[in-house]
Amino acid sequence: MNKVALFLLVISITLTCGKAGEDLTAEEILAMRDKNMVFDTAYSEIDMIITIGKRVVEKKLTSYTEGTEKSFIEFLSPARDRGTKMLKTGKVLKIYFPSAERVMRLSGHMLRQSMMGSDFSYEDLTETAEELRKEYNVKLLGEEVFAAAQCYVLELESKIENKTYFFIKIWVDKERYIGSKVEFYAKSGKLLKVLAVEDIKSFKNRYYPTKVTMEDKLRKNSKTEMIIKRIEFDILIPQGTFTERNLMRK
């Protein structure tokens, strides 16, 4: 296992150095994509624009993330949400409500429900750094042009039975190795969600999507735009960020 990881790492380093990428395997492409998406830690400032039917709601939030296990989100606006904070450690989510000055602990299926009416679930939002190649078997379907960029088209199939997003189809940008479009499918093959990347920025050691739109296909006329106004990778997260005391800090 370690050897494989090391091998992949070596390969990915050589590839990002710009050497020939013509004959990449599906696994290698996914690894390249994962490398862009996966980080140890990150801090971001996000605008979320939720559209449901004719209604548009805008929310601003900041987020600290450490891998897929820890995440801390604080809402800045609208006024009703300001000061609401969420701390996810492992499979447990704790939410602090300033209006009640109390913390509620949630686990299990709540995490798969829509977060604050958006098209993202709590998990979609807190587990962005998921390494897809650990969870899915991958197959290269071919190449296609998407949003004026040449893309590999990958098909991912879950390694385990119990997964809501059983199949994923990713259009990986051939130059930057970012999934510029992602389709999430149920096991039946029914399309559940579509994520489209509208803007990609380059950072110190990676590319990262900074403007995406998620559409929950089971809801009619609904989409959520997420704009990452600022993101810093692999920063030193202040001590005590992922603690309950921080949650209740005013």
Partner: peptide, 18 residues
């Protein structure tokens, strides 16, 4: 119509069918 089928009730993992 679409049927959302929960096949792991504890985790609420689901499938969907048209």
């Amino acid at each position: 119509c679409t049927l959302r089928i929960f096949f792991s009730i504890e985790d609420f993992i689901w499938n969907a069918l048209d």
